[in-house]
Simulated scan of single mutants.
Amino acid sequence: MLTIIPKPTDIPSDNSTRMVMDELDRMGYPYQVRFLEAIDPFSDDLSGATIWACGIRQNGHNFESLQALSLKNRIINSPESIVTCASKVMTSALLVQHGVPTPATFFTESRTLAGKFIQKHTKAVSKPVYGFDGVGIHLVESEAELGDPPFYLQEYVPNDRDFRVFVIGDKAVGAIMRVSDHLTHNIHQGGCGSAIEIPQEMADIAVRAAQVVGVDYAGVDLLSCNGSYVVLEVNGTPNWHCMQAPIPRLLAEYLVSQDQKK
C-alpha cells in the first residue's frame, strides 16, 4: 500500500498533500497516512512500501528517519536527493560536474577570496547554503557587504523574472514565469506567477537538472541568460502555485506507477 507523509507546512487553504490524496481517492487507489514524528524506524513494520514524503522539516529527526526507512522501502523523493536539494552547494556541484548550465558559483570561508569573486563579476548574489522560499538572498557589490561566513556566491545574471519548471520522472509537465520588482521572484517573496508553455530547451535543461540531483520529481528554477537558460536550484519538495498543468493528478499517477512496480 502507498504510504503518505504529509507536508508539515500544509494549511487548509494550501494543502499540497490533500490535493494529491484527492486524486488518489478519485482513482480508487489505496493509501495510508503516517507522520514521521510518530514513526520509529527500528520498530515500525513498514517494509517493502512506497512512501511519498510530500515535505519534511529540515531537521535531523526527519532526515534520519527517512534515511533509515529507505533501507526497507522506496522513498519518493529519496532522502539523499532531498538532502542534496536542501544544500545549494551540493546542488551546484552536481550541476557543474554534469555540465548543466548554471551561474558561476563560489563557496568559501575566506572573506578576501569572496571579495575577489565579487570584484571579478562586478556584483554577486549571496545566498544561504540551506535556504528556502527566497529568504536571505541579497545582492552584494563589495566585500564589505558580506555577512558571516561561509559565503555561497553566484554571479549576478541580470533579469526581471525567473521560471519554475515542474518535472516528474523524465518529463517537464508544467512551468510558470515569476515576475517581481526585486532580486528574488519567489511567490513567497511577493512574486507574481503565471503559467507558460515550456520551450523545448528549457524542458531539456530542467529534466537534466532533476536527473543529476537524483529526484523523482522537482521544481527547477531557471533564469534566461544569453539566449538560453541557467539553473539556479532544484527543489525536492516543491509547491506548484500558479501551474495550470494538473500537477496533483500527474503526481498521483506517478506514485501509483512506482508503487505498482514493486
Rank of each mutant, 00 (worst) to 15 (best):
S110V: 08
S180D: 03
Y254D: 08
L95F: 04
D10H: 04
I137L: 03
Q67A: 13
V100K: 02
I4C: 01
I118M: 11
V157W: 03
V215K: 03
Q97F: 05
G169A: 10
L36S: 10
R18L: 12
I196E: 01
L94P: 03
V179A: 07
G193W: 06
G134P: 04
N239D: 15
F35P: 00
S43C: 09
S180N: 05
V256M: 01
E197A: 14
S81L: 10
P149Q: 08
L250R: 11
D133C: 11
H61I: 10
N159Y: 02
G115K: 07
P103A: 13
Y156N: 05
F35W: 13
R74P: 00
G131Y: 02
V140Q: 05
V256A: 01
I4T: 03
A38D: 15
L250E: 08
V140C: 03
P246R: 03
P246C: 02
I56K: 08
T3W: 11
R18T: 06
I11S: 13
I176E: 12
A195K: 04
K261F: 00
S13Q: 14
D170E: 15
D221G: 04
Y29P: 04
Y156H: 11
E141T: 15
W52A: 02
L46K: 09
G219D: 06
A209Q: 08
D45C: 02
D44T: 15
V125T: 10
K261L: 13
L223S: 06
A104E: 14
R57Q: 11
S126A: 14
Q119H: 14
E37C: 08
V165S: 07
G28C: 07
S13F: 14
T108P: 08
L46F: 15
E23G: 10
G147A: 11
H241N: 15
A93V: 09
Y254H: 12
D10L: 03
P128Q: 07
I118C: 12
A104V: 12
T112N: 13
L139I: 05
Y229F: 11
M243F: 15
I137S: 01
I11Y: 10
G219K: 05
S180T: 05
I11A: 12
A124S: 12
L232A: 09
V213N: 08
V212G: 02
M177P: 00
R161N: 06
K7M: 01
Q189C: 13
V157L: 10
E201V: 07
V129G: 00
L66K: 06
V135F: 01
A195P: 05
P238S: 09
D160P: 00
I5C: 09
H241A: 15
R178M: 07
T102Q: 09
R164A: 09
